[in-house]
């Protein structure tokens, strides 16, 4: 037996240990319950976790949103009906957040409604461009693919700290600008530049993920279609718009929906990079939920739940509309 297979054997023995412990239990269960009920035995652990940490919370959340006080446990909380929603929607002028009793909610909402479309559009455009480049017959394709992908692996905190380090007043960016004689700026201190860099950094961190999906989509388009287009003397641009894009549409749709859902949920990077600031210039909905429900004293779980349900509802509506549109598009 080779050394390698001995190691594998030893590893196998270690891995077998829990199995040895579980096996008598499971075969006992099989004897008692019969083979027909065994699938449920296999399902129960996962189902328990799903119910406990995904389905049940949805219902509890609904209750939170219609109950008050800063108590955590539902049975301690008095029912207050739609008061939380009323508080959120309590504005004299809906176009001006300052007139709302929860102006931060409206600012976060407004920021999210600008951030999401901009970030998603920019990100998908760049990801598509990158995927098209990576799909060409070029040298070092695997290397470049890795380069564009690797920020996806970095933790949001690392991403944020990295860019903070570059964007700070004495950072590399300002160093580069001053070396070329351009004016320097304290990038994260001004609302507009902070917002720009928020979009930039989140695109930087996540576009590799969508690039990979789009690249797989591109690679699944058969080569001979392009060859046929060449025979029909189509220009590269025309074969992109008339062949690539239509054939990529299903993948683009998936990418689009995923990107929107995740963009709406953006939190970690911006929490570390800007902390929602300056002021509330880069505060998005999830951070608002976090601030209201966990950071602020007293914790307002009801308001956080109401805000998160509205967020979930918005996502659901968005996805449903997207699905409907795409299905309509496929019918013709």
């Amino acid at each position: 037996m080779s050394a390698k297979s001995q190691v594998a054997h030893a590893a196998g023995q270690v891995a077998m240990f829990p199995a040895r412990a579980v096996e008598p239990l499971m075969s006992g269960l099989q004897r008692v319950l019969g083979i027909k009920r065994m699938p449920w035995v296999f399902l129960i652990p996962n189902l328990t976790a799903v119910v406990l940490f995904a389905l049940l919370p949805v219902f509890i959340n609904v209750f939170y949103s219609v109950s008050g006080s800063d108590r955590l446990f539902p049975w301690d909380r008095p029912f207050i009906g739609g008061a939380n929603y009323q508080t959120l929607f309590d504005c004299t002028n809906y176009l001006d957040p300052a007139t709302c009793s929860r102006d931060l909610f409206w600012r976060a909402l407004g920021n999210t409604m600008v951030f999401v479309p901009v970030q998603v559009t920019v990100m998908i455009t760049i990801a598509l461009l990158t995927a098209v480049c990576l799909n060409r017959e070029i040298r070092g394709r695997g290397f470049f693919r890795g380069i564009f992908f690797f920020p996806v692996m970095l933790s949001p905190v690392v991403v944020a700290l990295t860019w903070q380090w570059i964007l700070q007043r004495n950072g590399a960016l300002n160093g580069l600008l001053s070396a070329t004689g351009l004016p320097t700026l304290n990038w994260l201190v001004f609302p507009n530049t902070a917002f720009f860099w928020s979009v930039f950094v989140t695109v930087w961190a996540h576009m590799g993920f969508y690039t990979i999906i789009l690249l797989a989509g591109l690679q699944s388009i058969p080569r001979d279609v392009y060859e046929a287009a060449r025979m029909d003397s189509a220009t590269p641009w025309r074969s992109f718009t008339r062949i690539t894009l239509p054939l990529l549409k299903p993948v683009l749709l998936v990418v689009f929906i995923l990107a929107v859902i995740r963009s709406v949920q953006t939190f970690d990077e911006l929490y570390v990079l800007t902390g929602g600031g300056p002021g509330s210039a880069t505060m998005l909905m999830v951070q608002y939920i976090y601030e209201v429900g966990f950071a602020a004293q007293p914790r307002n779980f009801g308001l956080a739940a109401a805000a998160s349900l509205l967020l979930g509802l918005a996502l659901l509506v968005f996805t449903a509309i997207q699905m409907r549109i795409s299905r309509g598009g496929n019918n013709d």
Partner: peptide, 17 residues
């Protein structure tokens, strides 16, 4: 179906549980 439930949306009840 739980794919459709963003973790952030159920943050409060998850914490409660």
């Amino acid at each position: 179906a739980t794919l459709m439930i963003p973790a952030t949306v159920v943050l409060v009840p998850t914490y409660m549980i």
